[in-house]
């Protein structure tokens, strides 16, 4: 399980009063403030985030310790991370994308198939994108109880039972 999760990035200064332009990657963009304090990737700096308002392509926000436009501009492009432990508990059979990505994939016979490369959702079910040495290209697998009977985050693996013809 990853320790830090990227939840946003700083686009630069917004206005001249020390506000920043914040791009949130959260499912609900305003939720980024709930994960305060946000840190840099190495954890060396941390910021309390206060959302001011919604703006075009992002949010206007104030960061603790950033009071001028110059300070805000200096942070342009900085990625903001939250601790994985700060994310709220999930319901049963609900998993964070960040927990699923990178898990080892095995079939029901115990043979390794590859790793979870990404999780996608195009409006129907969630899909696990699997890539492995035996596969010519990535394979999309519906994230259902039939196709993915076991998800074991603690041991870092999922067991899949792909429908016939999907891995061809």
């Amino acid at each position: 399980m990853t320790e830090r999760v990227q939840v946003g990035t700083i686009g630069g200064a917004y206005g001249v009063k020390g506000e920043i332009r914040l791009k949130s990657f959260c499912a609900i963009p305003e939720d980024i403030a709930d994960y305060s304090p946000l840190t840099t990737e190495d954890g060396s700096r941390s910021f309390d985030v206060t959302i001011s308002r919604q703006i075009t392509n992002g949010l206007a926000a104030r960061l603790s310790g950033v009071d001028t436009k110059e300070q805000a501009d200096a942070l342009r492009g900085l990625a903001l991370f939250a601790l994985r432990s700060q994310l709220p508990e999930t319901d049963e059979d609900e998993y964070y994308y960040t927990d699923l990505i990178g898990l080892d994939v095995f079939d029901t016979g115990g043979n390794p198939l590859g790793k979870v490369k990404a999780v996608q959702n195009h409006g129907a079910t969630d899909l696990l994108e699997i890539f492995g040495p035996g596969l010519k290209t990535t394979v999309l697998l519906p994230f259902t109880k039939e196709a993915v009977p076991t998800v074991d985050i603690a041991s870092g693996r999922v067991i899949v039972d792909p429908p016939e013809g999907l891995l061809e």
Binding site: Q6, F25, D31, T90, Y95, Y96, Q120, G123, F143
Partner: peptide
């Protein structure tokens, strides 16, 4: 076709959740 996009944008995982149905 509405459920099978021809272009893929991965984006960031952040706090997005997947539900196993």
């Amino acid at each position: 076709g509405e459920y099978s996009p021809t272009r893929t944008y991965y984006g960031h995982a952040a706090d997005k959740k997947a539900k196993r149905k």
